[in-house]
């Protein structure tokens, strides 16, 4: 059985269609990338898949059951989401924000158990946040805040991790740090990762299957090599590009060419 069945999904804001006739499947354990130019509908698609947005048409099945039929708390035990905006500038400490990830697992009105605190501590250590744990998150850099988001998602102990452009505001060091931690988590726990990415080179290195959106339609969906065709990419992004093979990883990479 598929983890996600996206069936004939369409969505419109007012009269403007944003998604049209979207249909694909995701299997358990995949790292699935969603790419496409600005305004192609990536974020809207991911919002329908995380249960935040009800699409105007079609349906989305999670484990064979409509995602709209899950209770919020049940859904939060299965799916964790890393949002593009990250964590707002709060004066809660790193530890407190990460602990909020335990919310779906707590019985109503009960405090964190010793086991919950253990889980929080493990995540803080794993992501190198242990020394920052008593710092308010509004004192952290953007990169550190994204690590806090990731730690919060980890303590949520989901089976699926959805990331909406997780590297957009980060320098290359933090970009790689986030992606490496996600990969390690994927490999050690076998979670399914679904990510919207702007950076085609990262997408090509970290995903095993890609969905290319263009103007609300699926342009192509499949293996990285099949989707990242230079002619297609060039025409969709309306940009001159050169495709080369990554000398180490043997995956397609793109170079931009100025005019």
């Amino acid at each position: 059985m598929n983890l996600f069945d996206v069936i004939h999904v369409q969505h419109q804001f007012g009269t403007i269609p944003v998604l049209q006739d979207i249909e694909f499947q995701i299997k358990v354990g995949e790292t699935f990338g969603i790419i496409g130019p600005n305004g192609s509908g990536k974020s809207t698609l991911i919002r329908t898949m995380s249960g935040l947005l009800k699409p105007s048409g079609g349906k989305i099945l999670l484990n064979g059951k409509s995602i709209r039929s899950y209770r919020k708390r049940e859904l939060a035990k299965i799916i964790a989401v890393l949002e593009q905006e990250g964590i707002p500038p709060l004066s809660f400490t790193v530890e407190e924000v990460v602990a909020m990830g335990r919310y779906p697992w707590l019985k109503p009105l009960s405090d964190l158990s010793l086991k919950d605190e253990q889980i929080v501590q493990t995540a803080l250590e794993k992501l190198g946040l242990w020394n920052l744990r008593t710092k308010p998150v509004n004192n952290l850099s953007g990169g550190q805040r994204q690590m806090v988001s990731l730690a919060r998602a980890m303590v949520q102990q989901p089976r699926v991790l959805i990331l909406d452009e997780p590297t957009t505001f980060l320098d290359i060091g933090h970009q790689m740090l986030v992606m490496e931690h996600v990969r390690e988590w994927h490999q050690s726990e076998g979670i399914t990762v679904i990510m919207v990415l702007h950076d085609l080179n990262l997408a090509s290195q970290y995903c095993n299957r890609l969905l290319l959106l263009d103007n609300g339609h699926i342009k192509s969906c499949g293996e990285v090599h099949d989707v990242l065709q230079p002619a297609t990419i060039s025409s969709i992004y309306k940009t001159e590009i050169i495709m080369i093979n990554h000398p180490v990883h043997q995956v397609p990479q793109f170079l931009l060419t100025s005019k």
């Binding site: 995380s50 249960g51 935040l52 919020k72 708390r73 049940e74 859904l75 939060a76 035990k77 799916i79 964790a80 989401v81 949002e83 905006e85 964590i87 707002p88 709060l90 809660f92 407190e96 924000v97 909020m100 990830g101 919310y103 779906p104 707590l106 009105l109 949520q156």
Partner: peptide
């Protein structure tokens, strides 16, 4: 009874929804 939820919502409405609120 809503103290934990009031904390959670400070992360933003969609983040709180994703955490099951």
């Amino acid at each position: 009874l809503q103290k934990r939820d009031l904390n959670l919502i400070s992360l933003g409405e969609s983040a709180a929804t994703h955490l099951g609120m």
